[in-house]
Computed example of a mutant assay.
Amino acid sequence: MSPRVSPVRAAAAAVALCGLLAGCAGTSASGNGPDSGDNRFISGNGNITEYKPADRKSVQDVGGERLDGERFTLAELKGKVVVVNFWASWCAPCRGEAPSLQQVYDENKAKGVEFLGVNFKDSKANAQAFERKFKVTYPSLFDDGGQVTLAFREVPPSAIPSTLVLDRQGRVAARIIGATTYSKLNPLVAKVLAGT
């Protein structure tokens, strides 16, 4: 049974979701993206925000079903630095950043860094095809209804694509709104790994 959500929290979550949908409402050949026909993606230089330890918000209680059908919660990764990327197969900037994300993951997984994708408002078949095409080897939560994304309302991603870097305590240490690159993301991961 789902926990009850207060009307104030529900309204805040709805506002966050509206902002997210406005950030990247794209076109796909199959028309699966929200507002198909609209091309307002967040692309170009991603906007980076870093948070001091005292200002970081925890997102440990986030969880859901992965694209492979397995259940998952972020709490399972406590003690590790975690990169959470919000993406969709219908989002052109998401395709552009996929190789950079995979490269940062490959270079840092042996150091205790985990990656988790959050596949937003997509079909499972299209999301799985995206992962095969871009050789994505880290897991993604399947968020077709947008509920997983709303769970990040304390530090909302605000757009597709967006990327969060979580510290070892499961708190948001950095946020990139818009497409990321290796040169943006890798130094952030290194800083959080170093404990700063």
Rank of each mutant, 00 (worst) to 15 (best):
M1Y: 03
M1H: 04
S6W: 03
V8L: 11
A10D: 11
A10F: 01
A10L: 10
A11M: 05
A12T: 03
A12E: 14
C18S: 08
L20E: 08
L21Y: 09
G23N: 05
A25Q: 13
T27G: 06
G31A: 05
G31E: 09
D35N: 14
G37P: 00
G37W: 03
R56Q: 14
S58D: 12
V59K: 11
G63M: 00
G64R: 08
R66W: 04
R71Q: 13
R71W: 04
R71E: 12
R71N: 10
R71G: 07
F72P: 11
F72S: 02
T73V: 01
L74P: 14
E76K: 08
G79L: 01
K80H: 15
V81H: 11
W87T: 00
W87N: 01
W90K: 10
W90T: 02
C94I: 01
A98S: 15
S100H: 15
S100A: 15
V104K: 05
D106I: 00
G112C: 05
F120E: 12
N126I: 00
F130L: 07
K135Y: 04
T137Q: 14
F142D: 12
G145D: 15
F152K: 04
E154N: 12
V155D: 14
V155A: 13
P157F: 08
S158T: 07
S158W: 11
I160D: 11
I160W: 15
I160P: 03
P161M: 03
S162Y: 07
T163S: 05
L164A: 10
L164E: 06
D167P: 13
R168T: 08
R168G: 07
R168M: 04
G170L: 04
G170F: 03
R175D: 00
T181R: 12
Y182S: 02
N186P: 07
P187N: 06
P187I: 00
A190Y: 06
K191A: 08
L193C: 05
